[in-house]
Design a protein around this nucleic acid. Structure first.
Length: 673
DNA sequence: TTTGAGACTTGCGCGGAAAGCT
DNA sequence: AGCTTTCCGCGCAAGTCTCAAA
């Protein structure tokens, strides 16, 4: 009967079930996960756990509701009601008996549907069921310059119209950058600036070289100086205002979870810079208005309101995508999005999937390697090129290398888009044979330079590919990323070129950690080992950085600190010796012990400093962040920390811990990638 | 097969906040 | 407390990859 009553109650809540499937699902899981035992479910369960905070919240609400329902009896009509209730109860039971088979069937059906949905949730392409947010925050409107700040044309002061003035200030702010001296930058800027001018201004201002922005430049410098000099209270006020904005616009509700939004502020207008030698540098990036924005949210949510007097371009309800708002940017004509923070469920799950794909590659990588080595001998040139390219992607962790439109972006390449001019072949170099020298600009115009010995067959193939070609011809002329990826897809479900980067990065970390960690090392030394393993990956992936401007100086500072410590140490040692000598005469145990402790402490400090120095020196031109955030399966790091008793905070800062919450929850100390 | 839009991940540099030092 | 150094989070550019229509 209890069971029956439970089912009855459940059917009464059918509405609730459908309106709020997520909540139900959690409930359902809590009750029933004991029955389900296959691995996938378990893992997903673990994944869910990292969001338990939200879950608790919603469950509490649920309980409160329940309470309310039960507490609505009043005492004065108690007896009367009691009889009435009894009768009703009997009636209810009869009805229940009668409808029992149907109820049961209904429940089974319902359960089935819910489970099916649960399973399908990730395969039917829908990303959410409910999405509510408040829309983006727009850039503050332009504030005209005070009258005393003047722009000069050809030596004479000239008052500009507001739109022209705004664009002029963009340029004026950049005066100290060397790119304002670059010809393309100036040309692009001037062309776009003229578009904003009134016809009168246009006819007057014809030569950028005659424009003098220095007063405007100084004005902005003074402004930023003033901002620095602000009192504590004023700074506090700004901080609070920012916090308020974050609280109001920085979060959304997706499927019962309050989630942090990644970039809820619209990019302000300005001059486009781009990276490397970009043909569009200096162009005007225009201001984004509500009329440019497409809002995405669920139909049954409270739709975000556009600022007073404006309209959204469109409000749509597409749950096949994850973005909340989008607009088209005017430099490349590409679409920009507002999406969730990496700590969100939707990003976390995707990240987890990515590493699972890489782990699947681990299982079949030997087969794939054997296959491409075989393909080096293929009769078909297309297959040979594919095989050699894949070899580079695997061995050197090169990016795929999509084609790009010429003249639209900086001239950079990846594996499939390598040109003849980017590789040199040396049959013999020093004591190595068959050396290939790579020298090209990759993503973000970062130089890739590497000399590696390759197998003879690869070398011969490369010679073949280079025959009768000009420097600007494609090295792999019969290959592009879609051919390559199509092939990879056939080798393993979900395999693409970039999976190799993920796989090789993670496997390298795991193997380096195994190799470098000494069980007896202190915690700082172990962390150095971790950083070294991380560094090996960063080098593999060619993650570089400009050496910090103050690098030399800070290195010197550190060195002098080390010298000083060394002096301290020898002094302390001398004292210890003296104390020991004294000890023989006076039997003063205490002093010896104190001195010994001092020596020990200084030794430790010195060691720490030296570790820091090595770490920093080795890190001069290497950026660890990118690989840590995007390529290393966080579960490897978590497991390593657990194994060696390293606090996770030493490896991941707060944001990183939030992003990797799923992994911190999931991985045990024996986790294997 | 080609092309391009669209969606999402990866990547570096910068500025301000926090931490460290005197 | 005041200054310097380091760290962190953000901004936004630049990749990868998918899908669908021409």
């Amino acid at each position: 009967k209890i069971f029956l009553a439970w089912i009855y109650n459940a059917t009464k809540q059918v509405n609730f079930f459908f309106i709020d499937t997520h909540k139900h699902k959690d409930k359902h899981k809590d009750k029933d996960h004991r029955h389900k035992d296959h691995k996938k479910d378990k893992e997903r369960e673990k994944f869910k756990h990292s969001n338990s905070e939200h879950k608790e919240h919603s469950e509490k609400k649920h309980r409160d509701k329940e309470k309310l329902k039960h507490s609505d009896g009043s005492s004065d009509k108690h007896r009367e009601k009691h009889k009435e209730k009894d009768r009703e109860k009997r009636r209810e039971e009869k009805v229940l008996d009668a409808i029992f088979p149907f109820t049961l069937m209904g429940c089974v059906l319902l359960w089935f549907v819910v489970i099916r949905w649960e399973e399908e949730r990730y395969t039917d392409g829908s990303k959410w069921r409910f999405l509510e947010h408040k829309g983006p925050v727009f850039a503050p409107p332009y504030e005209p310059l005070p009258d005393k700040v003047k722009f000069y044309y050809d030596g004479k002061p000239m008052k500009l119209s507001a739109p022209a003035e705004e664009v002029a200030t963009f340029f004026a702010k950049m005066l100290d950058h060397e790119y304002t001296t670059k010809e393309i930058f100036r040309k692009n800027f001037f062309k776009d600036w003229r578009k904003e001018m009134t016809s009168e201004e246009k006819s007057k201002i014809t030569d950028l070289n005659k424009c003098n922005f220095s007063e405007i430049n100084e004005y902005f410098k003074a402004q930023s100086e003033a901002r620095k000099q602000m009192s504590k209270e004023e700074k506090q006020k700004i901080k609070e205002e920012n916090e308020r904005l974050l609280q109001e616009y920085g979060f959304c509700v997706m499927d019962n979870h309050k989630e942090r939004i990644g970039n809820f502020r619209i990019e302000p207008p300005g001059l486009f810079r781009g990276r490397g030698d970009h043909p569009k540098m200096g162009m005007l990036k225009r201001r984004i208005r509500p009329e440019d924005i497409i809002i995405n949210c669920s139909k049954d949510s409270k739709h975000p309101k556009p600022p007073p007097g404006t309209k959204w371009k469109e409000v749509r309800h597409d749950n096949k995508v994850t973005w909340l708002a989008s607009w088209t940017e005017n430099i490349q004509g590409s679409i920009k999005y507002i999406m969730l923070n990496p700590s969100s469920r939707i990003k976390g799950e995707k990240d987890w999937q990515k590493y699972e794909t890489a782990r699947r590659l681990k299982k079949c990588v030997d087969r794939i390697r054997a296959q491409y080595r075989e393909d080096w001998k293929s009769k078909e040139m297309k297959i040979r090129q594919r095989a050699v390219a894949l070899y580079f992607i695997d061995k050197l962790a090169l990016r795929a290398g999509n084609e790009k439109e010429e003249g639209e972006t900086a001239d950079t390449v990846g594996c499939c888009s390598l040109r003849v001019e980017h590789v040199k072949l040396y049959p013999k170099m020093d004591d190595q044979e068959y050396v290939v020298e790579f020298d090209f600009l990759g993503k973000d115009s970062i130089r890739y330079y590497n000399k590696i010995p390759v197998e003879k067959r690869v070398f011969k193939n490369l010679q073949l590919f280079l025959e009768n070609k000009q420097p600007e011809d494609d090295l792999f002329d019969r290959l592009n990323t879609s051919i390559l990826n199509k092939h990879l897809q056939e080798l393993m479900d979900g395999l693409t070129a970039k999976v190799f980067r993920t796989y090789n990065a993670s496997i390298t970390l795991q193997q380096q950690l195994k190799e470098l960690t000494c069980p007896d090392d202190s915690i700082p030394a172990k962390i150095l080992s971790y950083n070294r393993a991380n560094r090996a990956v960063a080098i593999l992936c060619n993650h570089q950085r400009a050496p910090p401007k103050t690098f030399e100086k800070s290195m010197q500072n550190l060195q002098s600190k080390i010298d000083e410590k060394q002096n301290q140490l020898s002094a302390a040692r001398k004292q210890l010796k003296a104390a020991k000598a004294d000890h023989k005469a006076s039997h003063d145990d205490k002093t010896v012990e104190v001195k010994r402790k001092a020596v020990q402490r200084i030794e430790e400090q010195l060691m720490k400093l030296q570790v820091q120095a090595t770490d920093r020196e080795e890190n001069k031109q290497i950026a660890l962040g990118t690989s840590k955030l995007n390529y290393l399966d966080p579960r490897i790091s978590v497991a390593w920390c657990k194994k060696w008793g390293i606090p996770i905070e030493k490896i991941y800062n707060k944001t990183q811990r939030e992003k990797f919450a799923w992994a911190i929850d999931m991985a045990e100390k024996d986790y294997e990638f």
